[in-house]
Amino acid sequence: MSTPKHIVKRAGHTEEYDERKLYASVYSACLAVREPAATAELVAEKVTGDVNRWLANKHEVTSYDIRRITADSLELYNRDAAYIYKHQRNLG
């Protein structure tokens, strides 16, 4: 069983990492640029996988880290969705 990952939010409090939230935000960013739902699912899965791998050797990171790594990964699959993800705060 993997160790829980702690995310330090901008306000300073800490939350446990929830990959479902990440998946949903990437999925929404893809839909926002009119990707078909099936592609959006695939991209969201890949990006979530990339972020999970990046997190594997870490215990505590910031929400800014998660956004940055997610945007970098999403950029590889869909640049427009990455732009939307970076510039809209409440996706998903």
């Binding site: 160790t3 702690h6 330090v8 870490k58 215990h59 505590e60 990171v61 910031t62 880290d65």
Partner: peptide
């Protein structure tokens, strides 16, 4: 022992300890 990660400019976290 562990991997350091900056939380802010004066704080690091190692194995979730600041």
């Amino acid at each position: 022992k562990g991997r350091a990660h900056f939380i802010d400019k004066h704080t690091i976290s190692v194995k979730a300890k600041r």
